[in-house]
Design a protein around this nucleic acid. Structure first.
Lengths: 202, 202
DNA sequence: ATACACTTTGAACCTTATTCATTTTATAAA
DNA sequence: TTTATAAAATGAATAAGGTTCAAAGTGTAT
């Protein structure tokens, strides 16, 4: 046969479209099944339950995010410049993937079940990559190493997620990427080592 | 009559105890009613629905947070010192109110319904206070004013919420307040104006 | 053509939020 | 104290939706 359109993909596509406009609890399985053109029971052949279906939606977009991030960092040398680029890319990408953003920040990031299952791994909102950049910067002497790289990551992801969360809560008005320049300036002035003698971190 | 124990408080107390151990959807109204010693219908006399009950739980704790924050900032002069203290207090308070913290960060902060109803106002995770401190600092020349105070607030609340969120997701192991010193150092070195001539922001 | 395994189906089941007619309790008036 | 009236409390009935599973359908190999 040729219509090898994976049913799983079909269901996920329908789910994505519906979850885009409603909260988790306002979406019904029968609604998703109907849009996907399958029976209710079929949904349960491919997903354990409603939450499992929900969690699996961002998987592909996350992979795409990571791929594209790699491309955008390619060719840059300085870890600090890479971090600057990371900040830009994060805001740029999320602004252009609003459904994904809402799912990720509003529901998944803070969901214990999500965090504690396989779904979380391999998603990595750039979490691993940014840590690598920080450690690289510390080794090369561009970034202060009197502070844990994990705390620096909290700073960077924290401000980005906070900005983005409020952008979503306020209805996604205005552009997100316009925060990029000042955010990078703010973050980098806190984590870079100044090379003149007067500004040693006490 | 003397048993003027407000039924509303009674129900909220029971709800708090139960929500402390389960997710929103795993908690039933009948469970809450039973623990509160009232009938199911009574719950609906005092709260519009399950979500309304849920949202009203953190109200009192938030008021307490704000009160205590006021006391802790009292007597300090420098805005920068006040911000340092804010960071300490935030981590200290949340570490000592784990149920409140989980509710606030995991569920409410990112809930559109919560954000868009009266519940959000008057809760203010110190949101208003910290903005005031930043603006004060900018006026007095301690804090750089080439960056919007709102963005600086995103930085401060962002890193604090991020640290705390991961602390919760990882099962509240270790102490939170120990991050206070480095976090303050990191944040403040990004937002304070250095007074020597070499480090002017370009 | 037949047997077998794998998909798909959707009606039935079960749990739970929410409602509302009825009962109970408190307050005020006589 | 008795009666009238309003307020509070009740829990059985309703409605909605997630999940299950026995039956029907579809494809593949012998």
């Amino acid at each position: 046969m040729r219509n090898k359109i994976n049913k799983s993909d079909l269901i996920m596509k329908a789910a994505l479209e519906i979850f885009a406009n409603k909260n988790f609890k306002d979406v019904t399985i029968s609604e998703i099944a109907e849009r996907a053109g399958v029976a209710v029971g079929t949904v349960y052949e491919y997903f354990n339950n409603k939450e499992d279906l929900y969690f699996s939606i961002p998987q592909k977009t996350s992979e795409h995010f990571n791929e594209q991030l790699g491309l955008h960092l390619e060719g840059l040398y300085s870890p600090v410049e890479k971090i600057r680029k990371f900040i830009w890319f994060y805001l740029h990408y999320l602004e252009n993937h609003p459904i994904y953003t809402e799912l990720l920040l509003m529901e998944l990031r803070v969901n214990k079940n999500f965090f504690n299952t396989g779904h979380h791994r391999g998603l990595s909102d750039g979490t691993t990559e940014i840590l690598k950049l920080i450690e690289e910067g510390q080794q090369q002497g561009e970034i202060r190493n009197d502070i844990s790289p994990y705390l620096i990551r909290h700073l960077i992801l924290g401000v980005l997620e906070h900005i983005t969360t409020y952008w979503v809560l306020k209805g996604k008005k205005g552009d997100l990427v316009s925060f990029s320049k000042d955010t990078a300036e703010l973050v980098l002035s806190g984590i870079t080592l100044k090379l003149d003698s007067t500004s040693g971190v006490i």
